[in-house]
């Protein structure tokens, strides 16, 4: 125990604190996911439309979000909003904003891909059978796109959870930050704490993401049978 540095976890509230840190990470991801999915569905559907202006704007948004490192986005929102807009956003709020914007962009591209993967013939058949455009999307296109979308969007969720480790850079005390604090505080009494604490952090991330990945695999099997 001493050699692995696991003993630190049982000192005081350390383990509970780590769990709390994981909770912060999951809370940020969860809120971002809840915002990203409907927004991504809306924007992704718009991206399949012919209007060049709408497409251009959405394309730019997507590329911008993809090219910018998430860390830069976090700094931009957290520090930039204070300086230029005079807003005093908390670190967590900034994180939620960045992850929602990023998640929406990624989600919209997944939705666009899923919708365009539906063969043209399905639209023709629906049109020939007199369905309106709304009915075509509602009964024919979305249900088929959803099957292709589910596993992909679940992978996006796990990516989001993992990327929340960056928010410690804007002062949010999430799991990695808590881990660092524990290690710092116990530097003298347990010099090996780094290994044990980060191992625990690894296990916690794993336990949070693994069931989600399993769900993705299960759904994939069910839909592609």
């Amino acid at each position: 125990m001493q050699a692995l540095g696991l003993d630190v976890l049982f000192k005081g509230q350390n383990f509970i604190r780590l769990l709390g840190g994981l909770g912060v990470a999951l809370r940020i991801s969860l809120i971002a996911v809840v915002i990203s999915i409907p927004a991504g569905v809306l924007l992704g559907t718009l991206m399949t439309k012919k209007n060049p202006v709408i497409r251009g704007i959405l394309r730019f948004y997507l590329e911008f979000m993809r090219i910018m490192p998430q860390m830069v986005l976090l700094f931009l929102v957290f520090f930039g909003s204070t300086r230029s807009l005079g807003l005093d956003l908390s670190g967590e709020t900034s994180a939620v904003i960045v992850f929602s914007l990023w998640g929406t962009a990624e989600m919209s591209d997944l939705v666009r891909g899923a919708i365009t993967s539906i063969p043209r013939h399905q639209y023709d058949a629906a049109a020939a059978l007199c369905l309106s455009e709304r009915q075509t999307y509602y009964y024919i296109i979305f249900p088929q796109a959803l099957r292709r979308l589910l596993p992909l969007s679940i992978n996006l969720i796990t990516r989001m959870i993992k990327t929340t480790s960056l928010v410690l850079m804007i002062g949010v005390v999430e799991i990695i930050k808590v881990a660092q604090q524990i290690i710092e505080a116990n530097r003298m009494s347990s010099p090996n704490a780094a290994f044990g604490v980060y191992l625990t952090v690894f296990m916690m991330y794993f336990l949070a993401c693994f069931p989600i990945s399993m769900l993705a695999r299960f759904l994939e099997k069910r839909f592609y049978e």
């Binding site: 063969p119 013939h121 023709d124 058949a125 049109a127 020939a128 024919i140 088929q144």
Partner: peptide
């Protein structure tokens, strides 16, 4: 108007779901 026209395609195009 389209309700007066029925059409069948080469690739059937049933709704797979």
């Amino acid at each position: 108007l389209r309700q007066k026209i029925g059409m069948v395609f080469q690739s059937y195009d049933l709704y797979p779901h």
